[in-house]
Design a protein around this nucleic acid. Structure first.
Length: 354
DNA sequence: AAATCGGGGAC
DNA sequence: GTCCCAGATTT
């Protein structure tokens, strides 16, 4: 019946989709390219459960791409607060302005034009093209790498240039060109719910007889990744400086580092962990104030993909105003309007200073 | 080709 | 602790 195992794969995947796939999500089946784009950006490297509330928030506050384009950057960053990978939010805003201003609010309708949007790469362009316009571009995301590497027994590292090329070509051969949207949705749902990274449901899988990984007992070895990630440890010592007007010193993070365009307190970054005494001395030098009353009020660790951040928070209230153009003093009540990195937001929410 | 960009959940 | 998630961009 099938000339090769590729046609068999597509057939059995769609069969699984029709009989076993039950995963209702608000962006499934819709055709509004703006909402689809928004959902795809939010879901980049993000679990559906984590991204879902953000999608609902964004679509309610910004019903059209022009609403998003006209919003202030800080407001969008605040909306994105806690979701991580903040360049997505910055690119989202830039792309919205591009569509609103340069394209008269008309979302691009071809793969090539869609990919010109900032923050839209191969995967996202294929997703939008297929879901919104039913164009035959196969998505290749983490789910697809896993499903295809297992079913076809492909051992090429998925994080290599060769692997990316090989899987992209294969995925494009497999897609059902008569129903690209359904196929793309199906393979990702299958990877997320059935052919999972750990403990895949092979015993209940309608594809097990043709799955190379299952037949050879290599399910837990595929897909193969070659690169390993190294973490560096950084020490962030934050000074929460409150002046006589109940204002707190904050800065917007600039330059080439994590958390670009988010806010933070006065930061003293050090090569190693330092004591309260040392924090007081450094703060005194920088701020030119008496820091004897400076006290550590919290400290904790945060793990990022490539960094481990060990934070200390030290608080001091002084009975004067500080004339220092390096800091912005913001009323306490207004602090919670600004977008902070997750660890700082947690501190703010849990501290009785605010 | 390799490094970097967050945060959370499963194990 | 490790791995990975509807990846993209920069170096």
């Amino acid at each position: 019946m099938f000339s090769d195992n590729k046609a068999l794969f597509t057939h059995q995947l769609l069969q699984w989709n029709e009989t076993q796939n039950h995963r209702p999500l608000p962006w499934k089946g819709i055709k509004n390219p703006y909402f689809i784009w928004l959902s795809e950006i939010i879901l980049q490297q993000t679990r559906v459960e984590q991204g879902l509330p953000y999608y609902l928030k964004f679509t309610e506050k910004y019903p059209t791409i022009s609403d998003l384009a006209n919003a202030p950057e800080d407001e969008i960053m605040k909306m994105w607060e806690g979701l991580g990978y903040y360049s997505r939010a910055r690119n989202l805003h830039a792309a919205a302005k591009y569509v609103a201003d340069e394209l008269n609010g008309n979302f691009p309708e071809t793969y090539e034009e869609i990919k010109k949007l900032k923050g839209v790469g191969d995967y996202t362009a294929a997703a939008i093209a297929s879901f919104a316009y039913n164009l035959p571009y196969a998505v290749v995301d983490g789910n697809v790498y896993r499903v295809l590497s297992r079913f076809f027994g492909i051992e090429t590292p998925i994080d290599s240039t060769e692997g990316k090329k090989q899987f992209t070509i294969l995925a494009q051969e497999l897609i059902d060109k008569k129903k690209p949207a359904i196929y793309n949705q199906a393979i990702m749902d299958f990877g997320a719910r059935h052919c999972t990274p750990a403990k895949p449901l092979c015993l209940f899988c309608n594809m097990q007889a043709n799955c190379v990984a299952f037949q050879t007992g290599n399910t837990d070895k595929l897909p193969i990744k070659s690169k390993k990630k190294k973490k560096k440890t950084r020490y962030f010592n934050y000074i929460i400086l409150e002046n006589s007007e109940n204002e707190i010193a904050v800065n917007k993070r600039l330059g080439k580092d994590i958390w670009l365009n988010l806010y933070e307190f006065i930061l003293l970054e050090t090569e190693k962990e330092i004591t309260l005494k040392e924090i007081r001395a450094k703060a005194k030098e920088i701020l030119q104030i008496n820091t004897e009353q400076l006290e550590i009020v919290a400290s904790y660790k945060q793990l990022l993909t490539h960094q481990k951040i060990i934070s200390k928070f030290a608080y001091i209230k002084i009975n004067e105003l500080v004339n220092n153009k390096n800091f912005n003093f913001i009323k306490k009540e207004a602090i919670k309007q600004l977008a902070f990195p997750k660890s700082l937001k947690q501190f703010i929410d849990n501290s009785d200073i605010f």
